[in-house]
Amino acid sequence: MNTENADHFSSKPVHDESPPGLSICVHMRSLWLQRISLCLCVSVLFTAAGCASAVSTGQSASLSGDDLRRITDDMAMKLAGDPDVRAAISAEGALPIVVLPVENRMTGEILPRGPAMAYTARVRTLLAQKAPTDFTWIVNRDEFNALRARELSGVDLGPSPDAIQPRYALHARFQTLTNDTRDARSIYYLCVYELTDITNRKSLWTGSYELKKAVVKGFLD
């Protein structure tokens, strides 16, 4: 290293020689750079760690819990208020009904056993609460035996399927028109509920609920 450089490095700090205004300016700049550095660090950390979980975000064109509520509320109301059903209740007393799971006829949409049962079971629950004397709900034989095997306390299983013969069956069929492309997925749902007289296979009541759901696929979908 030459002497000039050595002198240069050993000289007093630069800001000591500078006019007061310039020193403040340099100091401010340094402060800003420190702040920018800090912001960078924080933003990187937030980007890395501040992400939502895999299940808390995102949308789907599948049926959701809200749809379950809307569909079953509507169907329970329509079933209970139907003139033919009211007439049958007047004529026969409480209608003995067995509840069956939803038949999945949807394109590309899985409906597992639990949700398939929930879509009819909630109609049963709503009607059992609102009109307890109009319907006698009979648990499907397999369900009854499964529940009894589990010896659930506090669960009212209702009459045994062997003790009372259901005359009506409440069942549902879900169908869809599905359009799935690289950019979007849209599904038009038709949910048909039916109360059928098992003895003669005549339909006492039919109700339907329609809805359309669509999602647009994004950058990393």
Partner: peptide
């Protein structure tokens, strides 16, 4: 299946 079928799970910070 549910995560794969959902869209927007990578929206915002993750993207």
């Amino acid at each position: 299946y549910e995560v794969i079928n959902a869209v927007g799970v990578n929206a915002g910070g993750r993207s």
